[in-house]
Amino acid sequence: MRLARPATVRRRVTLVPLIDVLFILLVYFMVTSVYRDLDMIPVVRGGDPMAGAAQVDGGAVAGGTLLLRIGAGGEVVLRGQALTPAGLTAALSGAPRVLILPTGAAPLWALTQVMDAVAAAGVGDARLVRLEDGA
């Protein structure tokens, strides 16, 4: 007796499930992605610290260096005088070196504003300084 084999039917690979999975992945990434444009401001370069110590004597710094203090409310003070943004730009023009000394309560946004002004004025040497603990 001979048994008749069933005819082999070649099944076609359907693409529809693949497309479904791809669409689900695509929608997932589009929905869960948060696009934020982030930049950076260096504060310590490798081997070249920008946040270093500085000898400041009574607010006077030698060699034409400006000492900018940032107050608790974000105000910028130079030689005891609070500066307006225009005044800060004028004071920074031509300064060879700037020391930025934020008080402990000064907010970070004030520091980045001062750094922006320093960069816009083309000051080549800007340093962030802090008072020693217990000073």
């Binding site: 444009d37 982030l38 950076m40 401001i41 260096p42 310590v44 370069r45 081997g47 970070l108 980045t112």
Partner: peptide, 12 residues
């Protein structure tokens, strides 16, 4: 001395 230290900011 772990390398470069940067503060993250946003331009807008």
């Amino acid at each position: 001395a772990l390398g470069e230290v940067v503060i993250v900011v946003t331009p807008s």
